[in-house]
């Protein structure tokens, strides 16, 4: 139960500071999760880093929910190594214009994580020093992790559907 009170503390402190901007707070499997908005995300991250001691950026990734108004969720995982506490922050952004400010000014390590997210989901991190594709070829043309793109290479000719029962 100790963790829950800790999470409560963080929640209270965040609400004091950011008010309405911290929404949809939940606690799946003991991990404090909340949603915020892209105009305050950098403030939230730096506040968490500087004031609340979440000094370690575990990961940045994205999730695609097609058909919604804000179809791409950028997910940050932070870690407070001293209190042994993790936190998850989500920002929902629009699929047509997926932009969000970069976190590279808060953590240098965010650089490649954001490049990967850009490569796979097409999220444009504004102010990123070097936003290029990282895993795929430059001429791929699509952001393959978006749900509308198939897993298999659509240009394959040697794989005939009849052999696979489709």
């Amino acid at each position: 139960m100790e963790e829950t009170t800790l999470n409560n503390d963080i929640h209270v402190k965040l609400t004091e500071k950011f008010g309405e901007k911290v929404t949809a707070v939940s606690e799946p499997y003991g991990l404090l999760t909340f949603v915020t908005y892209k105009d305050v995300i950098i403030n939230v991250l730096s506040h968490l880093k500087e004031e609340l001691k979440f000094n370690f950026l575990t990961d940045i990734t994205a999730v695609h929910y097609p058909g919604k108004e804000h179809g791409i969720a950028v997910v940050y995982h932070l870690h407070n190594m001293v209190e042994k506490q993790r936190i998850r922050i989500k920002v929902f952004i629009s699929e047509q214009n997926p932009t969000i400010p970069t976190a590279t000014n808060v953590w240098k390590g965010a650089n490649w994580m954001e490049r990967e997210t850009y490569d796979l989901f097409g999220v444009k991190f504004e102010g990123h020093p070097d936003l290029r594709r990282i895993l795929n070829m430059d001429d791929l043309g699509v952001h393959p992790m978006l749900k509308q793109y198939p897993l298999e290479d659509p240009n394959r000719v040697d794989k005939k559907d009849e052999f696979f029962g489709r």
Binding site: L140, Y149, E152, D153, R156, D158, K159
Partner: peptide, 8 residues
């Protein structure tokens, strides 16, 4: 790895 990125 029958995927978009792997040479078959």
């Amino acid at each position: 790895f029958d995927t978009y990125s792997v040479l078959q």
